[in-house]
Design a protein around this nucleic acid. Structure first.
Length: 565
RNA sequence: GCGGCCAUAGUCUAGUGGUCAGGACAGGGGCUUCCCAAGCCUCUAGCCCGGGUUCGAAUCCCGGUGGCCGCACCA
């Protein structure tokens, strides 16, 4: 185990779940410090997406109706068909294996796979024959209610919860594009073989934003403010290149400003959360790699001990999801876009003579009249009603030339989706923050976490474990806590040992109470990364520490007090 | 899922078919101590689970679970 994982376990950040029952791959617990830090990370994400960008958060169930995932394509597409060799036991993904061996393409459904196996006599490399192909859906299936009447699935992404709520959300945002909705929560995938600690989990945490935009308006009003941000890009042709966001969009490498904007926003969030900018890049999905729903797609990747791992996906999902849900639910998921000026259109309108067609078509008349409303007259009238072709003779209608006013059109919005893997980001931050450096010739473990991410923000330490110092320390600790600063007191062991304990879990500042405190009501604040100390009045502590812990401090550490070490 | 390697306190590890399973670090209590893992005393805590072989298994065998690596998988 790496030194980092050892520490994370020992100090209560992360450990594998169900340990007393032997554990199970793909599940991890966040311990006391981990849960706190994860919450801080999500809070920072909220700052960027909810407060800064003005999106709104919703919270929908983690169990979804079967319909939701039939419509989204997950029931059908989120599946691998597997074949197993009866001789050597090797398991392959069937469609890939057959494509490679028989040089044919085959639909990944069991019947087609079986047919292909037979027709092309595909055998295992070892010479063995394959078992019947079996489908393996990566979604967890469950039954809703007693009697298993209704099938449900644990959601494989939080996104669908936002898509299926589109009509309500559209009204909430008062029928105007663009608008953004976010959701932070759990998602589930029944991975075949989870590995690599917290990198591939069966139950994981996502923070997703769905930005609904007009398909023809993928410019972003805030793009100018981030145009000059430099990005390390890897294009779909595998070319590594550093460009500004503006250049990348102008050259057409990034498809449009919306994607460019969120790539930059993502970078800002990640870097401020503690991901090392030098170990962060944005990689474009190759054409054959993109999911079934996306056009352009960029992954934020971080370099870790596991190699480059995907930590964020930023995709243009187009109208794929809304379209699918519209087809499947038969509900209107469009938005009416009003033109700036109504368009006047002259057209030939068909006025049906009801006294003639009424008796003749009887119960079909309603539908016929409806179909005629938008019928483009081209000399004859021929319409399709429920699969039946009906032609109206000239005595059944008259043609009137009318001028109509069209005030707008109905469109299905496109969706830009930045999707964050919280667990992976969490782990990346820890790896990028973890350091073994030297202080006064002694080795120490230190996490260089930003103060607003660190699980414990301030350590409060009596210099010596004497009652008179302890009493003051307790008061200070209480006061910091009631002012919203997460402080922790520690009186056991030498002062140096206690500093190291806090360094190890990333606590950025330690307040030390000494005998000068009793004389003049001042304390020292020690800075984790430099071990420098300043002396400040106790009365200034809350204000000073809040300043130091903020996302954008206005004063540097040394400006707040005299440096004493 | 397959194959290889592995599994001893919170963590890292020593160890043998047969006394109380040893150490280091971490942790608790105490002494000491006026700023960076000091020292001393003391305490807590362990052989992954199930079955078998044996007079006797943490040790050998089988199965399971978990971990690491490789293959496959990762919409």
């Amino acid at each position: 185990m790496s030194d980092l994982m050892e520490m994370l376990k020992r100090r209560g950040f992360l450990w594998s779940s169900f340990e007393i029952y032997g554990g199970s791959a793909g599940f991890f617990d966040y311990g006391p410090l981990g849960a706190m830090m994860k919450r801080n990370l999500e809070e920072l994400w909220r700052y960027y997406f909810v407060i800064k960008e003005g999106m709104y958060e919703i919270d929908s169930p983690t169990i979804g109706l079967e319909d939701v995932f039939v419509a989204s394509g997950h029931v059908k597409e989120f599946v691998d068909v597997l074949i197993e060799c009866s001789k050597c036991g090797a398991v392959y993904r069937a469609d890939h294996y057959i494509e490679e061996r028989a040089k044919i393409s085959v639909d990944p459904v069991p019947e087609e796979i079986q047919k292909a196996l037979n027709e092309h006599a595909v055998t295992c490399e070892c010479g063995g024959t394959f078992s019947h192909p079996v489908e393996f859906n990566l979604m967890f299936k469950t039954a809703i209610g007693p009697g298993s009447r209704k099938t449900g699935y644990l959601r494989p992404e939080t996104a669908q919860g936002m898509f299926v709520n589109f009509p309500r959300l559209l009204k909430f945002f008062r029928n105007k594009l663009p608008f953004g909705v976010v959701q932070i929560g759990r998602a589930y995938r029944n991975e075949i073989s989870p590995r690599q600690g917290v990198i591939r989990l069966r139950e994981f945490n996502q923070a997703e934003a769905e930005v609904f935009v007009h398909p023809a308006e993928k410019k972003h009003p805030g793009f100018d403010s981030i145009r000059d941000e430099k990005l390390l890009l890897v294009t779909k042709f595998d070319e590594e290149i550093t460009l500004t966001a503006g250049e990348a969009v102008e050259k057409g490498i990034i498809a449009h400003e919306m994607l460019g904007y969120f790539i930059v926003l993502t970078k800002q969030f990640l870097v401020n959360a503690g991901v090392d900018e030098e170990r962060l890049r944005f990689r474009q999905h190759r054409d054959d790699e993109r999911a079934h729903y996306a056009t352009d797609c960029w992954d934020a990747e971080a370099k870790t001990s596991y190699g480059w791992i995907e930590i964020v996906g930023i995709a243009d999902r187009t109208d794929y999801d809304l379209k699918k849900h519209m087809e499947h639910s038969q509900k209107d998921l469009t938005i009416f876009i009003q033109y700036e000026k109504p368009m006047k259109v002259r057209r030939k309108k068909i006025i049906p003579k009801m006294n003639i067609i009424g008796p003749q078509f009887k119960d079909k008349v309603r539908e016929i009249v409806k179909a005629l409303e938008n019928y483009e007259f081209n000399g004859k009238v021929s319409i399709n009603i429920g699969g039946e072709k009906i032609t109206l003779s000239e005595d059944m209608y008259e043609i009137k030339e009318v001028e109509e006013e069209i005030t707008g059109e109905r469109i299905i919005p496109h969706v830009i989706e930045p999707s964050f893997g919280i667990d992976r980001i969490f782990y990346t931050i820890l790896e990028h923050s973890f350091d073994e450096d030297e202080v006064d010739g002694e080795k120490r473990n230190v996490l260089h976490l930003p103060g607003y991410v660190a699980p414990i923000q301030v350590g409060v330490l009596p210099l010596l474990s004497k009652k008179e110092l302890m009493d003051v320390a307790k008061d200070i600790n209480t006061n910091l806590r009631i002012n919203g600063i997460l402080a922790e007191i520690d009186e056991s062991g030498s002062i140096g040992r206690r500093y190291r304990r806090f360094d190890e879990i990333g606590t950025p500042f330690c307040v030390t109470v000494d005998y000068d405190t009793l004389r003049n009501n001042t304390v020292t604040i020690r800075e984790r990364d430099t071990t420098r100390q300043i002396r400040v009045p106790v009365d200034d502590l809350v204000v000073d520490l809040k300043e130091l812990l903020s996302l954008k401090p206005e004063k540097a550490f040394e400006e707040l007090g005299e440096i004493v070490r």
